[in-house]
Design a protein around this nucleic acid. Structure first.
Lengths: 204, 204
DNA sequence: GTTTAATTTAAACAAATGTTTAAATTTGCA
DNA sequence: TGCAAATTTAAACATTTGTTTAAATTAAAC
């Protein structure tokens, strides 16, 4: 039953995002997912391999969507950049649990294999944005900027908003709700802010 | 011997940053710090109270430096903003371990008390930047922007660079070194990038 | 120097951890 | 239906976890 495997992955994602890899026990996952403890070893082999499976499952999806955008030759640099930013805002806000794991837990991952795989995924994003910026510079619509740090500003802004939820709850005076509702509220604001920021930053 | 207390705090900070709160055992801290296991309970009471002491110890220092800048009435908005950004770049890059804990581990902290205290510290920064921006808008040198998300871009950029070290190692093709050397290398780049970014973003 | 308090130690505690086992149950197919 | 493979279960495994204990050592005060 492949559904059960997926269900375990979803529950694991939620718990890893909330409490971290080390902070989440296999029993915790099994109980929350309503499966027997041994099923996790049965399906995935170990807790670490379960984490690996989670990364692969989610990362491949983002990878495909990003590639689809990148091969589009009809878009002008500013359009392409805006579409990419909107894509990431949507993916990170609607899928905040996974991206929380990808960003906040990367430094603490002990396994070098997992760490490298997570870095691969981020590197691919970095290269896509670099391609758009250099293309725009060639066409003379973007000015000279530090590309790596421009990527840091884009990703950093989105991630800061999603990972500092307790802060923004207080800033906006809203009571705590689930990440999905928060993401829905913040996504349009983020898109507008980043569009304006990048327009000012990149326009010649 | 107050030195030993401080030594334990420094070691704990290093290990928490590397492996997270849950990923670090009290024995790990004791062994690395070369103190007896029971000394941690003796000095701090518990692992959680040790974490609390760590937050208080580091946060108060940043708080004081920030306040000193904020009361300076002689600075123009752009100067003040640049000084604040430089201050945070320096603090976060030279003190990356603590800020790694503050940002990447905030979402996974289970204790509400610690979570609130960490949010307090961030809120104070948010309010300081807000003050500078509204002041600049009153004086007519800053345009209308989303203040909260501008803060997100500033802090997010710095934090992304410090917390995605494995990514930037690969991007810049440098072999892994310690966080301090990396911070020293990135700090000037970060300051220049953020100055240019904020100039473009904020100038009328 | 004696005594009182503060520090340090090794050992033990119960609880929680990731993983494995071997038996029981269900499923799919001949 | 019969049977082999896949799934599910409860129990146990050995470690590791945070914390406590009570004795030993050191430091400070009189």
């Amino acid at each position: 039953m492949v559904d059960k495997r997926l269900h375990i992955l979803e529950i694991a994602e939620q718990l890893f995002a909330e409490k971290g890899f080390e902070g989440t026990s296999v029993r915790d996952i099994a109980n929350t997912a309503n499966v027997n403890l041994a099923m996790i070893s049965y399906y995935f082999g170990s807790k670490e391999k379960l984490f690996n499976a989670l990364i692969e499952w989610r990362a491949s999806a983002t990878h495909d969507v990003l590639n689809e955008l990148m091969i589009d030759e009809t878009l002008e640099p500013f359009e392409k950049m805006e579409k990419l930013v909107n894509l990431y805002v949507d993916r990170i806000t609607t899928n905040s649990r996974f991206h929380c794991i990808m960003t906040t837990h990367l430094p603490t991952i002990q396994s070098e294999g997992i760490k490298n795989r997570m870095t691969d995924v981020k590197y691919h994003t970095m290269e896509s944005i670099r391609k758009i910026i250099t293309e725009g510079q060639k066409k003379g619509v973007f000015r000279k900027v530090d590309i790596e740090l421009t990527v840091a500003s884009i990703m950093g802004t989105i991630i800061h908003v999603t990972s500092s939820r307790p802060l923004y709850y207080r800033v906006y005076g809203i009571e705590q709700d689930n990440p999905e509702a928060y993401g829905k509220k913040m996504a349009p604001k983020l898109k507008a802010h980043l569009r304006q920021l990048l327009q000012a930053h990149l326009a010649v």
